[in-house]
Amino acid sequence: MNWLTNIIGVPLGWIMWLLYSVIQNYGIVLILFTILVKALMFPLSVKQQKATAKMSVFQPKIQEIQKKYEKNKEKQQEEMMKLYETHGYNPMSGCLPMLLPFIILFGLIDVIYRPLTHILHIGSDAIAKATELLAASGISNTGRPELDILTHINDPALVNGLAADVVSKIQNFDYSLFGIDLSVVPTWAWNWFLLIPILSGVTAFLVSMVSMKMNPAANQQASGMGAMKIMMYVMPLFSVWIAFSVPVGVGFYWILSNILSGVQTVILYKIYSPEKYKKEFEEKMQAEAEKKKLERAQRKKIKVDPNEPLDPDTEKMLLSEKELNRKRLAEARRRDAEKYGEEYVEVTDKDLM
């Protein structure tokens, strides 16, 4: 896993270095980095929300296809692909936005563990020498050599054993946020650091809950409500466990990222809501139906004004047999619903078979 975090950490490290060269505070840089990541991922989030809105609209049709072709998986898949094509939906479109945050997180862990390499651009030889000097001084190795060097940079062994410019650069490195040392790994001891893992889990849970509440149909199609509910509880617990295993800088990034994701989810839902897409899709289908009627009128040499509503007789002449049967059945259902006070149920293709 180290080779993966190293590879991802390199480009992220250069971004952090660029930000730090302007703002000489690692904590502020981490905040700006989180905002920048969200901004760069925003187009993918928009695409994902659009796909989610579409899914919410044709979810009933998916269930109908699954039930109808339950014993014929090949036909079921064929009908599903036709449905996706009609709605312009790619079932794999939501995978990348879900995976990217974890990929970035692994890279960020490397940057936070190795700030001397990524942010200060101190050579590997100097870091190796500093590690040897700490070991010779009897300072225990925590497995985080660059963070150990930061913690003990004022130790005489390092001050006297390293080049003066290297010592000065490390001593002037501000690795804190509002006085909080971002290199500390949280423990269950009663202090402020304990809040970081807890808040990372709480914010992750709230984001999952908001997402499920706003897009229930898409979540059902994705893997069933049972699985989604399990994920809603498991992922926050996973984030707590991770936050207790890494420096608080990682947990802080996760908290801020979760907050931004929650705000983004609410905003995108208002802009690209399922209700809005449903209305647009129905208008599109209506326009295509009208276009087909005009084409039939031309073939049958019936004069119609596209800007005027059709009279009932002309409309019947232009409807296909299937459309005519659909309209008759819909009218009958509507009459029965009004007569008996029942709920009107839309006519589906299954009803016309």
Rank of each mutant, 00 (worst) to 15 (best):
G9K: 03
W14K: 11
W17Q: 13
L18W: 14
V22S: 09
V29E: 06
L30Q: 03
T34R: 04
I35A: 13
P43D: 09
P43T: 08
K47L: 11
K47E: 11
T52S: 15
S56T: 03
V57M: 01
V57N: 00
P60M: 01
I65Q: 01
Q66H: 08
E70A: 15
K71D: 15
K75N: 03
T86V: 11
G94W: 04
L96A: 14
L100W: 01
F102T: 09
L108I: 06
D110I: 02
D110K: 04
D110Y: 05
Y113Q: 13
Y113P: 00
R114H: 15
T117P: 03
L120K: 00
D125P: 00
D125I: 10
E132R: 11
L133Y: 08
L133A: 08
A136Q: 15
G138Y: 10
R144C: 04
L150W: 06
L150K: 10
I153G: 05
L162E: 00
L162P: 00
D165F: 05
V166W: 01
N172D: 13
N172W: 02
Y175A: 12
L177Y: 11
W188I: 14
N191Q: 08
I198K: 01
L199A: 10
S208W: 04
M214A: 11
A218W: 01
Q220S: 13
A222W: 08
S223Q: 15
M225A: 07
M225D: 02
P236H: 04
L237T: 13
F238A: 13
S239H: 05
W241D: 00
I242A: 02
F252L: 15
L256W: 10
S257C: 03
S257N: 14
G262I: 06
Y269N: 11
S273N: 12
S273R: 08
K276C: 03
F281L: 12
E282D: 15
Q286G: 07
A287N: 03
A297Q: 10
D305H: 04
D313R: 13
S320K: 08
S320C: 03
E321I: 09
K322M: 14
L324H: 09
K327Y: 01
K327F: 00
A330N: 05
E331P: 00
E338D: 14
Y340E: 11
G341D: 05
Y344G: 01
